[in-house]
């Protein structure tokens, strides 16, 4: 565990807490993509299947449970909590998220380190996480006035990705044979999606115009 990894995890945790805060206290999920949240629930469910088979640390198991619990409860709130569901931008959140799941599954079946059930699903979760933010970014570009909490949620998620890349660079130089191409490329693609988004978000901010 290095400082970048810990900072990345804490940023990730903060992003989830910001979203839960918005849903719990304001009873609103305006500007939040249910498609993206469902994809994250699938990501964590498929990645953390090893929670029963391999133990890394109390910290790891605890965080896995937090991410599983929070992602499924966010989906539950957005789908079934009356007050929260009423604020959901259903007409705007139209990204076909199943068109992301299927290619990721095919890619995981073709490109993986070991052809076992757990390993293929773990790889699938990496590919899916890389693109899971897309419905959220599309929704954001369609929504004219995004509130601070939604903006902070996405900003924190982007920060988490950036810190994980620093973590991999650190581990590459400090741990022998730490080479994980699949993890790195999927993580890099994910970070580039955020970087592209932040670039246009910044242009919109300084230009005072809408995102094209």
């Amino acid at each position: 565990m290095n400082i970048f990894r810990l900072a990345g995890d804490m940023t990730h945790l903060a992003s989830v807490l910001v979203l839960l805060l918005k849903i719990h206290t304001i009873k609103s999920c305006a500007g939040v993509s249910l498609r993206t949240q469902e994809l994250y629930a699938i990501v964590f469910a498929t990645r953390y299947l090893d929670i029963f088979t391999s133990f890394v640390s109390v910290y790891n198991t605890f965080m896995k449970l937090v991410f599983l619990g929070s992602s499924f409860s966010i989906v539950w709130y957005m789908r079934y909590h009356k007050a929260v569901h009423r604020t959901y931008d259903r007409e705007q959140d139209t990204f076909r998220h199943w068109f992301l799941v299927l290619p990721c599954l095919v890619l995981a079946l073709l490109i993986h380190e070991k052809f076992t059930f757990l390993e293929v699903l773990w790889t699938f979760s990496l590919y899916l996480e890389a693109v899971a933010i897309l419905p959220q970014l599309v929704l954001l570009q369609r929504t004219r006035n995004i509130d601070n909490l939604t903006g902070q949620y996405i900003f924190l998620l982007g920060g988490y990705r950036g810190l994980y890349i620093l973590n991999w660079i650190y581990r590459y130089f400090t741990e022998p044979h730490f080479v994980h191409w699949i993890t790195w490329i999927a993580g890099l693609v994910q970070t580039l999606l955020y970087a592209d988004f932040f670039y246009y978000y910044f242009l919109r901010f300084i230009g005072g115009r809408g995102v094209e």
């Binding site: 990894r5 090893d50 640390s57 044979h177 730490f178 080479v179 994980h180 993890t183």
Partner: peptide, 10 residues
Amino acid sequence: PRGGSAKDEL
């Protein structure tokens, strides 16, 4: 070769 595993990450 032994080395760190990305499986210990979240």
